[in-house]
C-alpha cells in the first residue's frame, strides 16, 4: 500500500512541477493544484497509514493513542487544503486580470519574441 501511495504522490508532484515550469498561466494554475494534492498527501503520509482508525475518541475513559491515526498531520493538511484553495482562487483572478491588461496569458505578461 505504501509503495502505491508513494508512487501516486510522485506522479502528482512530477506532473505538478512540470506544469509549474510551463509558460502559460493556465498550465501553472493546474500545476499548482496538482502540486498541492501531492504535497498534502505527502504531509498526510508523514503520520503513517492506518485503516479504520479515524481519530474519533470515545467519550471519557482512558485513551490508547496507539489505536488511532495521527491527528497532527491531518490538522496540518486541513489547513493546507484551505490555504491552497485560497491561493488558487487568488491566482485565478490575477491570471484573468493579467490576461486582460497585458493581452496575453503568458506568465511573463508578454509573448516571447519569435
Amino acid at each position: 500500500m505504501e509503495l502505491i501511495l508513494a508512487l501516486g504522490i510522485g506522479a502528482l508532484v512530477a506532473s505538478g512541477t512540470w506544469l509549474v515550469m510551463r509558460p502559460r498561466s493556465f498550465q501553472v494554475i493546474i500545476g499548482l493544484c496538482l502540486l498541492s494534492y501531492g504535497v498534502n498527501l505527502f504531509i498526510f503520509s508523514m503520520g503513517r497509514l492506518r485503516i479504520g482508525a479515524a481519530a474519533i475518541m470515545p467519550k471519557g475513559g482512558v485513551v490508547d493513542p496507539s489505536l488511532y491515526a495521527d491527528p497532527i498531520p491531518q490538522a496540518l493538511v486541513l489547513t493546507a487544503i484551505v490555504i491552497s484553495f485560497a491561493t488558487t482562487a487568488l491566482f485565478l483572478v490575477v491570471l484573468l486580470a493579467s490576461r486582460g491588461f497585458m493581452g496575453t496569458d503568458h506568465v511573463d505578461g508578454k509573448d516571447p519574441k519569435r
Binding site: 505504501e2 509503495l3 501511495l5 508513494a6 508512487l7 504522490i9 510522485g10 506522479a11 502528482l12 508532484v13 512530477a14 506532473s15 512541477t17 512540470w18 515550469m21 501531492g38 498527501l41 505527502f42 503520509s45 508523514m46 503520520g47 503513517r48 497509514l49 495521527d70 497532527i72
Partner: peptide, 23 residues
C-alpha cells in the same frame, strides 16, 4: 527536473511511511 522531483518525493514519502511511528 520534474521527474527527479517526483521520484525524490516518492522515495522520501515511502521511506518515512515504512519507518516505525512514535509521536
Amino acid at each position: 527536473v520534474a521527474l527527479v522531483c517526483g521520484t525524490g518525493v516518492a522515495a522520501l514519502s515511502y521511506a518515512v511511511m515504512t519507518m516505525p511511528a512514535g509521536n
